[in-house]
Amino acid sequence: MHDSILTYAKSRYLWVALALGAGALAAYLWHDPGGPPNGGTWLGYTLGTIGAALIVWLMWFGVRKRSYAGGIGTLRGWLSAHVYLGTTLILIVLLHAGFQLHWNLHTFTFVLMLGVIFSGFFGVYAYLRYPTLMTRNRESATRDAMLEEIAEIDQNALALADGIDPKIHALVLRSIQNTRLGGGAWTQLRARDGSDLALASLHEAMAAREQRKEMATSEMPTMFAMVDFLAGRATDKQGEAMRKLIDLISRKKALATRVARDIQFQALMEVWLYLHVPLSFALLAALIGHIVSSFFYW
């Protein structure tokens, strides 16, 4: 019922990809071009055509992903095929070129392709690894719920601090402001406009990382200061309130760390696309150049 893109339909597309790769390899070994193997032989042209068609088809995934109402098959099947056939492309293109690499446009196209494919590999890794980590990190709370709780803790902490000492109040206030400053992207997050969510999340991940750094420097002193205060001149009642306050701020710190993690995981699952997709368009351009220039060899 639930299975990953790699095991989809009993790994049907793994076998398709293996068959394609094995076929190409067999043809390459069997074929005798009467010189060094290259893209100019009939086999070279055949493999090149297959490769180019594959690239166009792989890029078509972006369109398929957005054709919500129709399209052949399930998106999951497409992705599974996308991953396996995309990987086979390395072999097919190498065979197409007869392993000839030089400082020219053709090799540049190849390097771009490798860039696309390897960024895709990271994507596969991210898709397999981070969802579970993300679920575990969230502990069944939603991100909004965690953010709300943080805001609430801030309120309560301020109220508590107010009753203790103006100094402590200022301290807590500053710590809250610092957290806000670092996590200014939170507000953006809550809006979730969806149009460039990925980009926003990237900003957020960076912001969150900064925020974590800041928490390491700003929250700890808050706590130390309070512990000092506790040990020093506080009355019993104030001590009680202080202990509560420390609990609250520790809880908030844990929550903030979790939110930052959450944002980070999401960003990791999306960041590679910012390489993968532009590179693939660059590849398409280079590919057109490669094909056009090939005709001048004639």
Binding site: D3, S4, I5, G70, G71, T74, L75, R76, W78, Y127
Partner: peptide, 16 residues
Amino acid sequence: GIPGGPACVRSCPTGA
């Protein structure tokens, strides 16, 4: 009304 079944399931890239 859409052939192929629920769009949410069909458009899930990872089969989740």
